[in-house]
Design a protein around this nucleic acid. Structure first.
Lengths: 235, 235
DNA sequence: TGACCGACCGACTGGTCGGTCGGTGACGCA
DNA sequence: TGCGTCACCGACCGACCAGTCGGTCGGTCA
């Protein structure tokens, strides 16, 4: 097949562009992928792309949406095979893991901040996450050692804790009119302690202490003594 | 104090730059913050900035590092006040939440992928997360309804599940020589089921099923029938 | 007083990249 | 044979921006 293979040609150009964009975004991220890159990977031209799509962003959005749809459909199919609720939850979990395992690229597009930065930062951020997870792990190991909680995989548990915290905070950050973040503490605490095998009795005893023991949050400014945390307005 | 207030001046220019960069990055993200923006916010010039820092990236890295250090120090201080292991873990959790609650900007710098994209995508990504969390929540609600698990806050639990999954996958994606993702399933399953209050007996029964019930992961190509998932080499 | 220096300034450069627009060839139709 | 149209091409435009570099200026020291 020299060029313009008919079978290949029949898959409309639009599809070829989408495929090319998909793997380009997954490999280099949105910002670092130029429309020209997509064009050449799809064996077309920039003009050809802008004939089919109004903007680079539109390509990305379409990709996100259809990819997510596919994953959701897959999960729902797997879940439908089970009837018992816990088994259904397990099936969902297992399916997501198995799907990503077989489609690393798909995972990249959906989970990594594809929207975002270059490799260097990705690694940096990852190291930061690892650092916090390690901190948590230390406390968990300690708890295991003293018998406060049963022996368990503290590696994964710490990752779960960090991931959960990360998500809770991110969600609060992106909320336009967020409730106070601390309000989530009691429920989050309960879930996380339970995940680490803390006995129910111990969980129910002692929610949030009335005061003290948390160093002055909300006091001093963000950085040093300067005028940080200024509102959106200023220059 | 008309201008060049001495007290203000004494806080070295370098600090002013760091402060300005901190809030600029937090508000607009790394990519969308121009060095000129930082300069004018710090009431200095681009040249002035490049006198103190070798590159834009260096500023960002320094900010990340010191911010993380501060948070870790704060957590460790709070933890040191407790002796019982579970209480220590609780203190850590509470401190992180309380700190971010009081320092939204700090949270933005550390947690959001500020390294990354513009607002539009952030919102998009958030919606996607919400969608998946909602999916999970459905299953959990079902489990509660049938009495398979005790009544609990399925809202946060689903967020925890999603966050955990997200983190596990992200970590696997950034690993250079990752173990198969499915290998984490048994441990992850255990932690998450426990977090949802599934009885220990039920957790121990049935780990991963021998086969089937997971639709053909790893089969068809990533997108349509095309040649996606090509390795890093190609154009 | 004059030589010197370090901090700081801002115009400029080199390069990148999204998006545009005037084509162009193949094809159907009259 | 002429004409319109669809799909596509690629040179080009304009904006944006990190980083550079020649220059200024307020001190300081001899």
């Amino acid at each position: 097949m020299p060029r313009t293979d008919p079978a290949e040609q029949s898959r409309s150009r639009r599809e070829r562009i989408l495929d090319a964009a998909f793997s380009a975004f997954a490999q280099r991220g949105y910002r670092d992928t130029a429309v020209d890159d997509i064009a050449s990977a799809a064996e077309t031209s920039k003009g050809g792309i802008y004939f089919h799509f109004p903007s680079k962003e539109a390509i990305f959005r379409e990709l996100m949406a259809t990819t997510a749809d596919k994953l959701v459909a897959r999960v729902e199919r797997a879940v439908a095979l089970e009837t018992e609720p816990v088994a259904r939850a397990e099936a969902a979990l297992r399916t997501v893991l198995a799907t990503f395992a077989g489609h690393r690229t798909m995972a990249r597009v959906l989970f990594l901040d594809l929207a975002g930065a270059g490799r260097a930062f990705q690694a940096e951020t990852n190291a930061l996450h690892a650092r916090f997870a390690q901190l948590i792990r230390g406390y968990l190991d300690e708890a295991v050692a003293t018998g406060a909680i049963p022996a368990l995989d503290t590696d994964i548990t710490s990752v779960v804790w960090f991931g959960a915290l990360n998500e809770v905070v991110a969600r609060w950050l992106l909320d336009d009119a967020p409730e106070p973040l601390e309000d989530t503490y009691p429920a989050l605490r309960e879930v996380l302690l339970r995940s680490a095998g803390v006995p129910e009795a111990r969980i129910r005893r002692g929610g949030v202490p009335d005061a003290g023991s948390v160093p002055d949050a909300g006091a001093g400014a963000e950085r040093q003594g300067a005028g940080a945390e200024r509102q959106g307005a200023g220059a």
